[in-house]
Amino acid sequence: MIKPHALAAASLMLACSLALAAPKGDAQNDPLGSHNWSYMRKDLFPATARVIFDERVKVSAPLTAENPMNVPVSVDAAALPGVTEVLVFADLNPIARIVRFGPTGAHPGLGFRIKLQQSSPVRAAARTADGTWHVGGTWVNTTGGGCTLPSAGSASPEWQKRLGEVSSRVWERKEGGERIRLRIIHPEDTGLAAGIPAFYIQALDVADAQGKALMHIEGFEPLSENPVFTVDIPAARASTGYQVSGRDNNGNAISATIEK
């Protein structure tokens, strides 16, 4: 049997070697205490990148999610200056990446819904102009199974007629600027339900009436069926109307005008 102090020494050595491998100031002590964090760090970010835990990146989600197929999540990284992109992921999901978005005029935040296979940290990593990734997150507890269930759409021929259909609406915000909410008809199949291949939206671009880009969204399998997005536009970029375009992993195009 290994003596406790020997074990402690060994783990200390291991911790030191990890600390040496990562850039100075890199995230080590996960505030969410997930055993998978070190692998997330390795898999999702370049070894040379600086990754820090930062409470200024806010992830709002229910502590207990009753429906693992439709867990609401909002990300807000506006407390950070100069956010260039945000990657949202769940450590313990079979497909960890959920969505990546790049605000190019829109507010650096996004509301959406996800499928969770089991209780997991849900995190957002916001990259600032200096290349640092700022990671915030929260735990979501759920009974799980959300990723391996077939979508309702996969069992019904109805969606085929309406695939890619967009419903939307624009609101003026009390804080100034505008809010766009949009919903797209899409099964968002993960590929993890038997016999149903992955089928999901990969790219969405929100632009103003003149076609100037406001937000690029890269989607992954865990986004919920018929995904709903909330995008806020600062007053300076408010437009007479908006447009959204994109495609899924089968090359089906999505295109709609969002009228006020």
Binding site: S167, S168, R169, V170, W171, E172, R181, L182, R183, V228, I258, E259, K260
Partner: peptide, 11 residues
């Protein structure tokens, strides 16, 4: 939500 979004955009 679906009902609210189905409306055409009302400020």
């Amino acid at each position: 939500e679906l009902k609210a979004l189905s409306h055409s955009g009302r400020p």
